[in-house]
Amino acid sequence: MFQILGVLVVFGMVFGGFMLAGGHFDIIVKALPFELMMIGGAAVGAFLIGNSGKTISKTLKDFSKLISGPKWKASDYRDLLALLFQLTKTMKTKGVIALESHIEKPHESTIFSKYPKILKDHFAVDFICDTLRMMTMNLEDPHQVEDAMEKQLEKHHHEEMGPANALQNMADALPALGIVAAVLGIIKTMGAIDSPPVVLGAKIGSALVGTFLGVFLAYGLVGPMSVRLKNVYEEEAIFYRIIQNVLVAHLHGNAAQISVEIGRGHVPSEFQPSFIELEEALSAAPAE
């Protein structure tokens, strides 16, 4: 919602200020379609040249996150802590053998199936299962496991940041593309150098629309979109970081209750359940 409001404020303040200062829109309106075709088309073309099909597809898919924000909500963090509590408690009380069926076939697991949204996230499920599998293979050094998890998180985060980086590259290129369009406009103007000053003034004004448009799109729209996506990805990454915190705490020999309490402390403040709320969520979790 704030993103839509922000776009309206940007357009309203820029063009409203131009109008109140006595500016006329006739030259801008006349030049805008052609300048937008050159600048926007070149930016999209450069975006296609510079990015893989996977990044292009993910960028288009993740545009909705500009408004909707991170996919994980308060209830999802509670579900994650409850899931990890049940898994670590099962491992402590029933042993490794009882856990194997859950981590080898999580989509058939009676524990994972209680949390369908988490189950749909392939990385979260694989991250949990791969780490627990390492533990069942007697890799019980917390530092080794934490290091292996850290590398997985770094790889995943790097891949997730692709769209934000691609949009930032586009934002960086737009001012230069605006200059390209402006230079083409000056070339057109020089071809009519013998025209009256009124005609030349209109042509120069039309050329400068290109410079304006490139800078305006870069710093008023595309750049902020990149920042917004980056912030969304950063917040979503906290969800996976909590998995690491809980499982490493479990490896250090803590009880399941203590491990998830450590994880609770890393939940973003706006989504963080209180101690009592977490206790109630764990108590309400269906028995296996």
Rank of each mutant, 00 (worst) to 15 (best):
L177R: 01
P268H: 07
A192P: 00
L177H: 01
G265N: 06
L200E: 03
P163A: 12
V10H: 09
L184D: 00
G191W: 07
V96G: 02
A176G: 12
F127R: 03
I111L: 12
E35V: 01
V209Q: 09
L229A: 10
F11G: 02
A21C: 04
F34D: 01
A287R: 01
L83K: 04
A82Y: 04
P286E: 13
A256T: 08
A166V: 09
T189S: 13
F275V: 12
L139V: 15
S64R: 15
E35I: 00
S283I: 03
L184N: 09
I258C: 02
I262H: 03
D130F: 02
F18P: 07
M91I: 05
L99H: 10
R241W: 00
L139S: 03
E236Q: 07
L184A: 11
K92L: 07
P33H: 12
M134R: 00
L132P: 05
F47C: 07
L213Q: 05
L132S: 02
Q86P: 00
N169R: 15
G23C: 06
I128A: 06
F85C: 00
D76R: 13
K151R: 11
A249S: 15
V145T: 10
V7K: 11
F2E: 13
H266N: 09
S195I: 00
V96M: 12
G205F: 00
Y219W: 13
K203N: 08
G178N: 10
A148M: 11
G205N: 10
L167A: 12
G17Q: 03
K71Y: 03
A74C: 02
S52V: 03
V227N: 13
L84V: 08
G178H: 11
D147F: 08
G205A: 05
I276R: 10
S274F: 12
P196I: 10
N165A: 14
V7N: 03
F47G: 09
I4Q: 03
I128S: 06
D121Q: 09
I67A: 12
I103F: 04
K30M: 07
Y115W: 09
V260K: 10
F112A: 07
Y219C: 04
I204L: 02
G12L: 11
Q144V: 14
M135F: 06
S259E: 06
F11A: 14
L48W: 14
E146L: 03
L132Q: 09
V125A: 03
A256C: 06
E146S: 15
L36K: 06
H157Y: 13
L177S: 01
E35M: 15
P33V: 11
Y233Q: 13
E261M: 07
L229H: 10
L200H: 00
I238E: 10
K188L: 09
T88Y: 10
G265L: 14
M149P: 11
V267T: 12
I262V: 14
S75Q: 12
F127H: 02
S57F: 12
H107K: 15
A82G: 07
V232W: 08
F18D: 05
L139Q: 13
K92I: 00
L174I: 08
L32I: 10
G45H: 09
Y219E: 03
I193G: 04
M161G: 03
R264E: 01
L217A: 14
D126C: 06
V180S: 02
M38K: 01
G17P: 07
H143K: 15
L217K: 08
V198L: 10
